[in-house]
């Protein structure tokens, strides 16, 4: 019986993560975007906690702790600090408008279900339908990076792709070996730091973080 409960809970958390990423695509201002990202990380941590609790894999607890510590608390603060320093205007100008990006993310969800369908039928782990959701979160993250002009939003898109990735890792195989998890985590952190540095340099030279200025190098 608890098998059923865990499946429902896991699916619930995954769906909530998907919901947050769709809403992130639809926001037009920077602050709600960051809060949505931290919300998504909270759901990811919950997911990890449930899986760890049911499967008894101890190292997933560490994963859950790390996610909570870094992605919910540290990362948003850092982003807000960067935004404050660069006093970027709150407005995110989308290149294809809200209805367009929502439709696109719907298409992405459909595609990932269509692709994951043969895999799910053969898997036996309880969280098998999380695979489709994690793939769609990744694709939506990439979509967000494609349609936003601001450097900060590209970073957040990348982080959302990472969340989808970790959801997949946890759901599919009760988490990858510990060192891999931690390695992936730190890699994400370093990437964010570097992006912060370069965002700063772009801001210094173009006094705006709008990547549409970065058009010089073309054929």
């Amino acid at each position: 019986m608890d098998q059923l409960i865990t499946m429902n809970l896991v699916d619930l958390c995954a769906v909530l993560m998907l919901l947050t990423s769709v809403m992130a695509v639809a926001t037009t201002r920077m602050k709600p975007l960051i809060t949505l990202f931290s919300l998504q990380s909270v759901f990811l941590a919950a997911e990890a906690f449930i899986v760890a609790y049911t499967s008894g894999e101890s190292h997933i607890y560490i994963m859950c702790g790390l996610t909570l510590a870094l992605k919910v608390v540290v990362m948003p603060k850092m982003l807000l600090y960067i935004m404050g320093k660069i006093h970027v205007d709150k407005e995110i100008d989308l290149s294809i408008g809200i209805p367009g990006s929502l439709l696109a993310s719907g298409f992405m969800i459909f595609v990932s279900y269509y692709i994951a369908e043969p895999l799910i039928s053969t898997m036996e782990t309880v969280e098998r339908n999380c695979l489709a959701i994690s793939l769609s979160i990744i694709l939506i993250g990439l979509l967000m990076m494609c349609t936003r002009r601001k450097a900060i939003t590209e970073t957040i898109g990348l982080l959302m792709m990472e969340n989808g990735l970790f959801l997949g890792a946890i759901a599919l195989s009760h988490g990858m070996p510990l060192i891999v998890e931690i390695a992936a985590f730190f890699d994400v952190m370093v990437v964010i730091i570097i992006i912060g540095i370069f965002a700063n340099r772009i801001n210094k030279s173009f006094n705006s973080v709008d990547t549409s200025f970065l058009r010089r190098l073309k054929e």
């Binding site: 992405m108 694709l139 990439l142 979509l143 494609c146 990547t211 549409s212 970065l214 058009r215 054929e219």
Partner: peptide
């Protein structure tokens, strides 16, 4: 003309190729 210089279209290429 593929090499437009704007990073959004580059990311778009990757997305399209993947899908």
């Amino acid at each position: 003309r593929v090499q437009t210089g704007n990073i959004q279209s580059y990311l778009g290429y990757i997305l399209v190729t993947l899908v």
